[in-house]
């Protein structure tokens, strides 16, 4: 009895999580002009449409540029901030931690409005670099949370060993802590990238004429809705599944190296 109840519960919850995605795939494969489910005939027409339409390609390129830029900035600053937050002791450390996590908790609309006001004054609206920095800001909490968590589990004596064996503090960090952090950097990099890549609200406020992929989809929704949008959505999903898989492989490999596994004495 309990097993049946649990099974029903499982199907309901996972169904709720997956159903919208499951609908998207057949819809994207339709041959018709309109969104239809189930599709009457299958084709890759709308996938082709995406690559032919310059505005889609441009929007994707803009999103990629901003995404990679924001990821790089948030990884660099986030990692440095994490080292300070984990390894040193200073007053206001708690407050500083909260500030780094804040963009995750404060409603996007609030951040969007605040940025809009500031950017307007500094004439930064419609500026791809300013937009990249704004995205780096909302990506940073993911980096700080994951990297601080990982750093706390790092055995500092490994870095000490590197120091006493002749490495300067920076080289010791690069040769010991950084390899340990690689999977965490990968995971937080993926999260940071997608935080930027699918960001809509803040971008709508401050992008001006710049069209990122989510903005392009948004604009499409309000004008005409054709099956290119589900096709884009399916491709995005595949890309993120790929990224997560690579990240997980890296994490498992690292875990094996750092666990002190019992090997029988020779």
């Amino acid at each position: 009895m309990t097993r049946i109840v649990l099974l029903v519960y499982f199907v309901l919850v996972t169904g709720f999580l997956l159903l919208p995605l499951i609908f998207l795939l057949p819809i994207s494969l339709t041959n018709s002009q309109f969104l239809e489910f189930p599709p009457k005939s299958l084709s890759l027409r709308w996938y082709r449409e995406f690559f032919i339409d310059q505005s889609w390609v441009d929007a994707t390129l803009v999103s990629l540029k901003i995404g990679f830029g924001a990821t790089a900035i948030s990884l660099l600053l986030g990692t440095l901030a994490s080292v300070a937050l984990v390894r040193s002791n200073f007053r206001l450390k708690g407050i500083l931690t909260a500030i780094f996590i804040a963009p995750l908790i404060i409603p996007s609309v609030v951040i969007a409005l605040a940025l809009y006001i500031v950017f307007l004054r500094w004439r930064l609206v419609n500026n791809i670099y300013a937009l990249t920095i704004a995205h780096a800001m909302i990506a940073m909490p993911y980096v700080v949370m994951i990297i601080t968590g990982s750093l706390r589990r790092f055995d500092m004596t490994i870095e000490r060993a590197a120091r006493i064996l002749g490495a300067t503090p920076v080289r010791a960090f690069i040769h010991t802590t950084l390899p340990f952090l690689t999977p965490a950097l990968f995971a937080s990099g993926i999260l940071a990238f997608f935080a930027s890549f699918d960001e809509l609200i803040i971008t709508l406020f401050i992008s001006g004429g710049l069209q990122t992929l989510p903005v392009r989809i948004w604009n499409d929704l309000s004008l005409k809705l054709d099956p290119t949008v589900p096709a884009v959505a399916v491709m995005l999903t595949l890309v993120s599944i790929l990224g997560m898989t690579v990240g997980e492989i890296a994490r498992r490999r690292n875990e094996r190296r750092y666990q002190s596994n019992p090997i029988s004495e020779a």
């Binding site: 055995d155 004596t157 490994i158 060993a161 120091r163 006493i164 490495a167 002190s260």
Partner: peptide
């Protein structure tokens, strides 16, 4: 530390994994 030219062995080995 790195300029002291001292060798050291730790309890938990501290090899670079």
């Amino acid at each position: 530390t790195e300029k002291r030219d001292i060798g050291m062995v730790f309890q938990n080995y501290s090899l670079f994994p």
